[in-house]
Amino acid sequence: MRILIVSDAWTPQVNGVVTSLQALISQLRGMGHQVKLLSPGDFRSIPCPTYPEIPLVWNLWRVGPAIRAFQPDCVHLATEGPLGWAARRWLKKRNLAFSSAIHTRYPEYVSTRCPLIPLSWGYAYLRHFHRPSQAVLVTTEHLRGEFFARGLRQLKLWRKGVDCSLFKPLPVAGDAQSDPVFLYVGRLAAEKNLDAFLSLDLPGLKRVVGDGPQRHALQQRYPRVEFCGYQHGHALAEAYQQASVLVFPSLTDTYGLVMLEALACGTPVAAFAVRGPLDVLQQGITGYMHEDLGAACRQALQLSREGCAREAAKQSWTVSAHEFLAEQPLLDGELYMPSVLLT
């Protein structure tokens, strides 16, 4: 098939949405499908005023012609940003079917950054955006139930995976407790709740891999923490391998791919007992979840690295890609029909 994916999130951004889409596109192309991604790099954009790493496309009138030029069999809207809205508007006007996805807890993120905006407004925004979608893809059964309770419909399961050829344990594991390294990987932004981790009194070293709008403030506040910036590929895998525990302090993530990547490298996870960690971790086997994050960190040190890697190896991107394909409507609303020409 000819598959078009529209996303406001793409490289050089580093986040779970980009990681998921990169893995998906690689798998789909490996299956023989033709995949095109429409991203901010294909258009003119300006930096987001409160988050300059995120580009906002402004010449949105070019989105429709770009869709028509590719002649896709199906279209997937990965994000609810300007590009997603422009593609949605063009498709809906022509009564063409599409799928969409909820990758992040957008309402919670907005409320964290702008406390004056009620959570209910964010969910009204999500309901409006996804209402015409034939299939709204979510990562876990828990999220499907939660979003259904918030009034979203057509919710389908699309589980994420991990690249075990890249993220794998060291041949010989070191003694994690002799000089523990507590690692955070991800964006440095308010919604990630970094202070809950960095303020803890823990033995050994705290290391942060990632970047974002809070980096300067956090470095000033926590001078003893090692800030490494973004890491990719083998360098990122090595950061996981060298860590004793991955600390995941977020209270709002829908999933948290970094947890799977860490586990594949044999590194257990410490987190709060909230959605995301609850969907990824097995308490006492691959991680510890506790309302006291410091206690979870210390308990996670006791876990078997071999057990963590063994559990992570059960999840692959190939299975994830097949789940994605199974929920894709063709533009006329049918599944796996011959190519539909656009006019």
Score class of each variant (00 low, 15 high):
Ala101Trp: 04
Ala309Ile: 08
Tyr123His: 14
Leu342Glu: 10
Gly333Thr: 01
Ser120Gln: 15
Leu278Ile: 01
Gln71Val: 03
His103Arg: 04
Tyr109Thr: 13
Pro118Phe: 08
Arg29Ser: 09
Arg89Gln: 14
Val136Thr: 15
Leu38Arg: 01
Tyr288Ser: 10
Asn59Ala: 08
His130Asn: 06
Asp195Thr: 12
Thr112Gln: 13
Pro180Trp: 09
Ser244Leu: 05
Pro12His: 02
Gly41Cys: 03
Trp90His: 10
Phe70Asp: 11
Gly64Val: 05
Ser320Gly: 01
Leu341Ala: 13
Asp292Thr: 08
Ser199Ala: 14
Leu335Cys: 12
Glu323Arg: 14
Met289Lys: 05
Ala87Leu: 09
Gly284Ile: 09
Ile102Gly: 04
Pro52Leu: 01
Pro132Gly: 10
Leu137Phe: 03
Val18Ile: 12
Asn193His: 09
Gly333Ser: 07
Gly151Cys: 04
Gly41Met: 07
Ala217Met: 12
Gln299Pro: 00
Glu238Ser: 13
Arg207Ser: 11
Gly32Cys: 11
Tyr184Gly: 08
Glu306Ile: 13
Met289Phe: 00
Leu155Cys: 03
Leu218Lys: 12
Ala235Trp: 04
Met289His: 09
Asp292Ser: 11
Arg29Tyr: 04
Arg29Gly: 09
Ser133Val: 07
Val136Lys: 02
Gln214Ser: 15
Ile25Glu: 11
Asp73Asn: 15
Gln27Ala: 14
Arg224Tyr: 12
Leu200Gly: 09
Thr318Gln: 14
Thr50Tyr: 14
Ala87Pro: 10
Ser199Pro: 09
Val269Ile: 04
His234Ala: 15
Ser165Ala: 14
Val17Ala: 05
Tyr240Met: 00
Asp332Gly: 03
Phe129Met: 03
Trp10His: 07
Tyr255Thr: 00
Pro169Met: 06
Ile46Cys: 03
Ser250Asn: 02
Cys48Val: 09
Ile25Leu: 03
Phe182Lys: 12
Val269Trp: 06
Ser7Arg: 04
Glu334Ala: 14
Gln231Trp: 07
Ala86Val: 13
Leu37Arg: 09
Leu166Asn: 01
Cys265Tyr: 00
Ala235Pro: 01
Val245His: 07
Ser7Val: 00
Pro65Arg: 03
Gly32Lys: 08
Met259Thr: 01
Ile5Tyr: 11
Arg159Cys: 10
Ile117Tyr: 05
Asp253Val: 02
Gly294Ser: 07
Tyr51Gly: 00
Gly276Val: 00
Asn95His: 15
Lys156Met: 06
Arg305Ser: 13
Leu77Arg: 12
Arg62Pro: 02
Glu80Leu: 05
Met337Gly: 15
Phe129Arg: 00
Phe129Cys: 07
Gly84Pro: 03
Leu4Trp: 09
Gln220Phe: 03
Val269Glu: 03
Pro329Phe: 02
Met31Pro: 04
Trp10Glu: 00
Met289Leu: 02
Cys48Arg: 13
Tyr106Asp: 02
Pro203Arg: 14
Pro40Cys: 04
Val247Gln: 00
Pro338Met: 02
Arg275Gly: 15
Asn95Thr: 10
